[in-house]
Amino acid sequence: MDPQDENGAIEHCLVRVRGVVQGVGFRDGCMRRARALGIAGWVRNRRDGSVEALLQGSPQQVAQMCDWLRHGVPGARVDALEQTAVPAPSPPLEGFDVLPTA
């Protein structure tokens, strides 16, 4: 999937997922889903028990990824999802990776 929609729009969104989202394969599932959607960015655990992801893609791709994040993998329990639009990083993101805990 192309990371741009027909208008060429690219969104950058920082997402925080709270609940039972660590120790259940959430980050690996997130990475697989993002790559399948053509999303660039990263995902990492936070020391407070949440998971944080930076997403770069078309509005449709980002919306689809956020829909997935609301449920995650079997064994996860998502209690809250916070989305924040952020400025585009420089240089633009490429690929999707799991980062170390922050």
Rank of each mutant, 00 (worst) to 15 (best):
M1D: 13
D2Q: 11
P3K: 10
P3N: 12
D5W: 02
D5G: 08
E6N: 09
E6Q: 15
N7S: 14
N7D: 07
G8T: 00
A9F: 13
I10T: 15
H12I: 06
C13W: 11
C13H: 06
V15K: 05
R16C: 07
R16Q: 14
V17T: 01
V17Q: 00
R18P: 04
G19R: 09
G19W: 00
V20Y: 09
V20L: 14
V20K: 13
V20I: 14
V21L: 01
G23D: 03
R27K: 14
R27A: 01
R27S: 06
D28Q: 10
D28P: 00
D28Y: 15
G29K: 01
G29Y: 02
C30H: 01
M31G: 05
R33C: 13
R33S: 12
A34I: 11
A36N: 09
A36K: 15
L37P: 07
G38S: 13
G38H: 08
G38E: 05
I39R: 02
G41P: 12
G41C: 03
G41R: 01
V43W: 09
V43A: 04
R44P: 04
N45T: 02
N45W: 07
N45M: 03
R46M: 13
R46I: 04
D48P: 04
S50R: 04
S50V: 10
V51C: 00
E52K: 05
A53V: 00
A53F: 03
A53Q: 03
L54T: 10
Q56W: 00
Q56H: 11
Q56P: 10
G57W: 05
P59N: 13
P59H: 12
P59M: 09
Q60P: 11
Q61T: 06
Q61D: 15
V62D: 06
A63H: 12
Q64V: 05
Q64H: 12
Q64F: 07
M65C: 09
M65D: 13
M65I: 07
C66F: 03
D67W: 11
D67G: 12
W68G: 12
L69E: 09
R70W: 01
H71A: 10
V73I: 02
V73P: 02
V73W: 01
P74Y: 10
P74S: 07
P74M: 00
G75N: 00
A76T: 00
R77A: 06
R77H: 05
D79G: 14
A80Y: 09
A80M: 08
L81R: 04
L81K: 02
Q83L: 12
A85N: 10
A85S: 14
P87G: 13
P87D: 11
A88Q: 04
A88P: 09
S90T: 15
S90A: 13
P91T: 14
P92A: 15
L93S: 08
L93G: 05
E94Q: 15
E94G: 15
D97T: 10
D97P: 06
V98K: 08
V98R: 08
L99P: 01
L99Y: 09
T101N: 06
T101P: 04
A102P: 15
A102W: 14
